[in-house]
Design a protein around this nucleic acid. Structure first.
Length: 594
RNA sequence: GGAGUGGUAGUUCAGUUGGUUAGAACGCUUCCCUGUCACGGAAGAGGUCGCGGGUUCGAGUCCCGUCCACUCCGCCA
């Protein structure tokens, strides 16, 4: 070893010992006759002193004078106490320093394309940092995140192992699944024209593990989806904490999940959990009240239906016609929202429009009385009724959505989230978990009117089983399916699965699939279910998003060692890249001439 | 595929109604300095103002096009 200790290790107790350290030159303070080097590794920083009066030869002084940022050096010397008034309280090693007696330069470094010190400037452009990710990783922030990522994974593994779950790796080369996101395809060399697909999730494999008798499975599962990225969505590959349980009800899955989330929060953050046990909100209520199936519940700010008030008599044609066409009118009262300027209201209006709202009506609760551009249409009486209904007081603002139910929810949900942000209600010291339950099994197709589609996951067990499928209106059937929302992110999704071939065929039939189609697409799983599949269910935790919240990162790229950029490329390794004609030929791929 | 914001020194940014030689901080180079810790001091190097075109006596600044980045929408069973 080129070191006897790490750069974060030495304390007063080692004073007098001769030690050997290796690391990177972090900072250099050259005083002529004495040179200080802050030597850094991932454990910390130790001050090295080069001083002719304290063990450093003329030659070492000459070499120390050459040292530059990020050179890799090896130093031998004696641990010495710092004079009382020279102690650096900011460093764990701040009470000591090394009096260098030997110096070896292990490697030099070019001047860096950006600075590593956190407190200096705002950080460099992300594209540049990604190109030199190996340097960015030296920064304290990323060192801390990677360490925490490791600790969280260890804690999760321990948690599941303590409860009899076993970690099983499922294939990376798998089959294209006809539902869901775009697949990453891998051409087969031995079977011309055929392809593997990288799994979007280990869904079918974990269900087959249940059939295989592994009644409690979990995995830190790599998942692959070829979709455009977002700040909270890494392009290409990402990780889920995937788990599945046999003989389990929804309550059983929740009972495993909830303590895990609490433990991780308490162990890795100082955030306060808003509500324990976690609230359970139906999908319908979440949409109506918060305008989202992943509401940020660090603040309440509920949306209220006022359709009933509008029904009787309303002079505002936007509201009246929405109700007449079977839509709804909802109101969002924002406490203290009268501080919003015209330009902020314009911005919120644009936001609502991105969710297909046609506009964003509002009433400002000014000190001199309510003011609204739509007052002249509403009339004072109706306006006062609305103000009364939502409980608005001076200083508030009320926003309105009038349209189809889903449109109103989405628009006011986006406005609610933005208002929470603008008013500083998204407290980083708080964390809100909530179960979103009772997802509908089906919804009306948006492409083919009159046709029924799966709302979410076709493999979920419908509530009420076969009987419900046969007797209920499809749109009224709920699925045994649940998400967990956390601070506005969907952080977990799961279900009690449909393990009964009969119910499965029926469920697919309602969505317009013939038995032959189902057999062709999900044959392996369905035929396995004919051999004594146990009832089972589970969930998958979005590990990356969870880690973003635990580490207070806004960008999902910060929590990967080697992230893709916003266009799905690795700018450091330059992937994706071209391959040789020979490789293409082996894979039976002909490139079109450009 | 669409929208918004941005692109000026190695990095982060400023740059006025269009007007001399495009600035600052940090970094870098050389020198000075024996107690600093974001050390200090002196001097210096470093720019195709993303790219192309246009308007103008004159463009970093105005106009058109284009490329790139980030964020959002679509998309994500």
């Amino acid at each position: 070893m080129l070191r006897s200790h790490t750069c974060g290790q030495l304390r007063k107790s080692e004073i007098g010992q001769t030690v050997e350290l290796s690391g990177w030159v972090y900072r250099r303070r050259d005083h002529g006759g004495v040179i200080f080097i802050d030597l850094r590794d991932r454990y910390g920083v130790t001050q090295i002193k080069f001083d002719v009066n304290h063990g450093s030869s003329e030659e070492i002084m000459k070499n120390a004078d050459q040292l530059r940022s990020e050179w890799v050096i090896n130093v031998k010397g004696k641990v010495a106490a710092r004079p009382e008034e020279m102690i650096n309280a900011k460093l764990g090693t701040g009470e000591i320093e090394i009096e260098a007696a030997e110096l070896k330069i292990l490697n030099k470094s070019k001047a860096l394309p950006f600075e590593l010190e956190e407190e200096k400037e705002s950080q460099a452009n992300e594209q540049l940092r990604l190109k030199y990710r190996f340097l960015d990783l030296r920064r304290e922030k990323l060192q801390t995140i990677m360490k925490k990522r490791d600790e969280v994974i260890v804690a999760i593994r321990e948690y599941f192992h303590e409860r009899n779950f076993i970690d099983i790796q499922t294939p990376i080369l798998a089959n294209s699944s006809p539902e869901g996101a775009r697949d990453y395809l891998v051409p087969s060399r031995l079977y011309p024209g055929k392809f593997y697909a990288l799994p979007q999730a280990p869904q079918q494999f974990k269900q087959l593990l249940m059939v295989g008798g592994f009644d409690r499975y979990f995995q830190v599962a790599p998942c692959f989806r070829d979709e455009d990225p977002r700040a909270d969505r890494h392009p290409g590959d990402f990780y889920q904490i995937d788990f599945e349980m046999s003989f389990a009800s929804q309550e059983d899955v929740w009972a495993v999940t909830e303590p895990l989330m609490i433990q991780l929060t308490e162990k890795f953050t100082d955030k306060k959990i808003v509500a324990k046990p976690f609230p359970r909100i139906t999908f319908q209520d979440a949409l109506a009240k918060y305008g989202s199936d992943k509401p940020d519940l660090r603040f309440e700010m509920p949306i209220k239906p006022i359709t009933a008030l509008i029904k009787s008599d309303c002079g505002f044609s936007v509201f009246a016609s929405a109700v007449k066409d079977g839509g709804v009118v909802h109101a969002l009262k924002v406490d203290g929202g009268n501080v919003f300027t015209r330009s902020i209201i314009d911005e919120l209006t644009e936001l609502a429009k991105t969710k297909d709202a046609k506009g964003l009506a509002y009433i400002q609760m000014r000190p001199e009385g309510p003011a609204s551009p739509i007052n002249k249409f509403l009339g004072d009486e109706l306006m006062n009724k609305i103000i009364n209904e939502v409980g608005a007081k001076t200083g508030d603002i009320i926003f309105f959505g009038a349209d189809k139910f889903r449109t109103v929810c989405a628009a006011l949900g986006a406005v609610r989230s933005k208002c929470g942000e603008l008013l500083g209600l998204k407290d980083p010291k708080k964390i809100s978990f909530a179960w979103i339950i009772d997802f509908p099994m089906y919804s009306m197709s948006e492409i083919e009117p009159g046709k029924v589609d799966f709302e979410h996951n076709p493999f979920s067990m419908p509530s009420g089983g076969l009987e419900a499928l046969e007797k209920e209106q499809p749109l009224n059937i709920k699925a045994n399916q649940y998400d967990m929302a956390c601070n506005g992110y969907e952080i977990l999704s799961g279900a009690i699965r449909n393990h009964d071939p009969k119910i499965m065929y029926k469920a697919f039939a309602i969505a317009g699939y013939t038995k032959e189609e189902v057999d062709r697409k999900f044959g392996a799983m369905i035929s396995a279910f004919e051999f004594g599949a146990p009832p089972h269910g589970g969930a998958a935790i979005g590990f990356d998003r969870l880690l973003m919240i635990l580490t207070d990162c806004d960008s999902i790229r910060d929590i990967y060692a080697f992230p893709k950029d916003g266009a799905g490329r690795d700018v450091m390794m330059d992937s994706p890249s071209e391959v040789s004609p020979r490789q293409l030929k082996e894979l039976h791929i002909k490139m079109e001439e450009k």
